[in-house]
Design a protein around this nucleic acid. Structure first.
Lengths: 187, 187
DNA sequence: GTCCACATGTAACTGGTTACATGATTGG
DNA sequence: CCAATCATGTAACCAGTTACATGTGGAC
């Protein structure tokens, strides 16, 4: 039940059409809650039916014609309610950890390449976040809104930092194991 | 497509019935890939149909009767294939970050209590992981399998450590903002 | 015998993904 | 006028969740 609230947040930041939302998700909110355009259109329809958003006038509605939406007071109320409501954290679910655990049983053969690839992907993501931090949160000026958004970005940066570090360690371990095995009996 | 492989891993570690698997998921593999008993029974049926596992003999199959499964060579092969196959990391999806971002727009009222609750939950999880580390991975003796499993546990520990730290910072920030606002206009 | 815990399962629903359909606008 | 792109949408599918159904065996 988070996508509608992600959309409400995005629309409050700036009224938009479905495709504009999709684009903004790709490079901002999507960093911690991704969505495809199909999901977004479906959800926009529901939000409108519930009276949380409305189509901005000034555009004739037709297929292939841009439709922009804005948030209604009821929508802002719902978002505030949801934000403050207690929610349980979802348990971790990570295939990479599962694969390492599986590798403890069936062996690490072939695993190294993909670990390298993941390390590279996380490094790139980290660099991207750091670039955003430099651009959007220069030291000094910070409104309360800025401080909260910066906090969210810091979570992204710290998580990517964690993964790059962890993957480096995992690679050492896996490389050492492959080495051992190669030494024992040329695989 | 990870649940079947989580089950194969668990069954290779030790042949089990559906309910035994459910229990073991609750306190081991489930730490990074949780599953309910309904999912597990459904998946066991599929895995058996595909020839990856088979029912252990020695138990008469009847409703209410325990059925234990073991992994067949084809199942082990499939798990090895999956472990080595390239997989893209799934983008982060976290409601708490989304809520902070929403709070930047609709305000932080009522948020603090749930942040405290999350902090407490993560602290408890961290303590649990550290207990497991003390119990299962004492310094010294480490087989290759141990090293890999320890690596996975370290990921859990480091992630929980990150969250407790991040939440502490977030709480300071949110408390400061609530304080400001209370100072401005007695909320 | 009744109740409760154990054990296996079915059904309906929700949210996310993938593939495809269709109209409008623009550049060549 | 044709192709490419923009923009909105439909349909089918898949994995995970929630609620419920059914049978067995032991405790009382």
């Amino acid at each position: 039940m988070s996508l509608p609230h992600a959309i409400l947040t995005a629309l409050l930041e700036k009224p938009s059409s479905g495709l504009e939302l999709t684009r903004r998700f790709d490079k901002s909110i999507g960093y911690f809650w991704s969505a495809t355009h199909q999901q977004i259109y479906r959800e926009l329809g529901k939000l409108e039916a519930e009276g949380f958003i409305r189509e901005l006038p000034a555009a004739q509605p037709a297929r292939g014609q841009k439709k922009s939406y804005e948030v209604l007071p009821a929508g802002r109320g719902e978002l505030a309610r949801w934000t403050a409501a207690a929610q349980d954290p979802k348990p971790l679910r990570d295939t990479l950890l599962l694969r390492l655990r599986a590798a403890a049983v069936v062996g690490t053969a072939g695993l190294e390449a993909d670990l390298h690839r993941h390390l590279e992907l996380h490094r790139r993501q980290l660099a991207e976040y750091e670039e955003i931090e430099r651009r959007d949160f220069p030291p000094g000026r910070d409104t309360p809104e800025d401080r909260l958004r910066h906090l969210v970005l810091r979570a992204g940066i710290d998580l990517e930092t964690f993964w790059t570090g962890w993957l480096s360690g995992a690679l050492e371990e896996v490389a050492a194991l492959s080495g051992e095995r190669a030494g024992d009996a040329a695989d």
